[in-house]
Amino acid sequence: MEPTCSSDAGAPETNVKRRRFLVGAGAVAAAGLGLKSFRTFDESARRAEVFIAKADSYDANLEEPIRAGLSALGFGPSRVAGKSVLLKPNLVEPTREAPHVNTHPALIRAAAAVFRGWRAREVFVAEGQGHCRDSELVLEQSGLEPVLDEERLEFVDLNHDDVFFVANTLRFTNMERLGLPSMLRRADLIVSMPKMKTHHWAGVTLAMKNLFGVMPGVYYGWPKNVLHFAGIPGSILDVNAAVRPHLAIVDGIVGMEGDGPIMGTPRHAGLLVMGTNLPAVDATSARLMGIDPWRVSYLAAASGRLGPIAERHIVQRGEPVQPLVQNFQLLDHPSLAGLRI
C-alpha cells in the first residue's frame, strides 16, 4: 500500500466519522511504507481517467459540462448523495482588476449546484489564501461573496481554523508532521478547484499546488512561509499525500500565463479539466498549456507515488488533448526555460 491521493469514497463510511486521517501509530506504519515506495516508483500499474470539457465563457451553462464530466468519470449521484462536500477554490489575493488570479465565482456556483442536485448533505467553500489574511476582503474583491450569499453557501476560513496534526507520510520535505484545519474532518469529499495558471516558482499551479491553501496560515504563515522554506515541490507532494483530495475541477476557461500565479496576464483557454486523480489532472492540464509534465519537478516526482502522469496511463474522456493545446507563455527565466513540450 503506497500513499495515494485517489478517492477513498468507495470505502465503508459511518455516520459519525467524516474522513480518516492518518494519526498516531497508524501514521508511523504508513510513513514506513511511504518511504519504502521512494526506492522504486513505477507508474505502469496506475491508471486514471481525466475529462476535458469545452466551456467558452463564464456566462455559459457550466453545470452541464461539470455534470457530464463527473458522470463520465463515474462520480455521479451515488458517490455524492448524503456526503459533505468541501469546494476548495484558488483564492490567492484580493483584486477586482485581475479576476484571472482567482477561481471564477460562476464555476464555484455551478459545482455547488451539481453536488446539491445530486443530494449532497451539504456543500461548503473553504480556503486559506496565501497572500492576504483578510478572507472577507478576498471574497469581497473576487466577486465570490455575493455568490455565497445568493446560494447560501457557507465559507470557512482555513487560515484561522483549529489545527490537528498528521504524520508526514511521504517525507519529500523534512517536515515530520503536517498541521491541517479541523474543517477537513467535516468533509467527506474534498474538491480542488484551481485556476489554470503558470507559476514563477513551480512551473504550473493547478489542482495539486492549490492545496497549499488548505494549510492554516496561523501555523504556516503568509505566504505559507514554512512550505516555501521546506521546498515548494516537496511540500506540494507531502500536502497532497496528507489531505488526499477526491476530485479536481480545473478552471481553464480564462487562465493565466506569464508571471503567474498573481501578476500574469489572462489567457482564454475555454476549458474545464476534471478527474479523481490529481497528478493525472495536472499532467493533462499542463499538456493543454503546452508544458511537459515530466519537466515539472513535482509532477515528475508524483508519478507512480501519487498517480500516473504519462499519456499512455491516462484515459482521456471528453475532448481530446492535442487539438486543444495552447502554449501558455512562460516567464523568461532560466528555471522555466526547459518546461515546454
Binding site: 489575493e93 497572500h131 492576504c132 483578510d134 503568509w222 505566504p223 501578476m263 516567464l331
Partner: peptide, 18 residues
C-alpha cells in the same frame, strides 16, 4: 504595503489595506 513582497521577477506587486 502587502504581506511583504514589493516585487517579484521585476513585477511590482499589489498593496493591501490591512
Amino acid at each position: 504595503w502587502n504581506y511583504g513582497n514589493k516585487s517579484a521577477f521585476g513585477n511590482a506587486l499589489r498593496p493591501q489595506p490591512a
